[in-house]
Design a protein around this nucleic acid. Sequence first.
DNA 1: CTGTATCCTGTTAGATACTG
DNA 2: CAGTATCTAACAGGATACAG
Lengths: 99, 99
Amino acid sequence: MTRAMGVVGGKWKPILIFTIGAKRVRFGQLAHTVNLISRKVLTEQLKELEEDGIVIREAFAELPPRVEYRLSAHGLGLLPILEQLCQWNSARPPAVGAP
Amino acid sequence: MTRAMGVVGGKWKPILIFTIGAKRVRFGQLAHTVNLISRKVLTEQLKELEEDGIVIREAFAELPPRVEYRLSAHGLGLLPILEQLCQWNSARPPAVGAP
DNA sequence: CTGTATCCTGTTAGATACTG
DNA sequence: CAGTATCTAACAGGATACAG
């Protein structure tokens, strides 16, 4: 459990997983879509997701360079769970101290 | 999404939610079952979970004092999702750099 | 028994500039 | 275009002692 949270628990990881979804997405697209993340952090999180077998990184030896990210089969299995988490959250009652 | 992760994303929150489950659990039971958490952090996390409407805190004016925690209806809705996350994690492939 | 109050540390992420 | 390097700030969490 703790480990599962570590895998998806970074500040940006769930957002990145959603953004990649079932598509192939380039580094620049991610940086643009998730426009508040710094490139340094984006690189770090993607590297961790790759090490955890969630995303697959594919680099093309072109000019200009192109790198595509996509979810692995294991990573795709996460999508419906995160969607449920989203739905659960949107149905949540207002916070106690909310204005 | 970011908000949902904030709600369940603490280091101990998912574990606490699981530990409470469908029961009423006393503070000391939680501290004992999750025996690596400090009381300070336990108090903090429970307070946040309470503010987010996940757990309900009930204090009894007895000696010695007794405080029971249980999941709200909203909190109970989280259990199956966390269970799925657990199952997903236990089916995960070995890490790339694993020994 | 159930917390608070301090103090301290490691981790995480953001800003900025530079590279192949 | 897709990163790295470096520095800094903020925060979460732990150790310990004390309180109602």
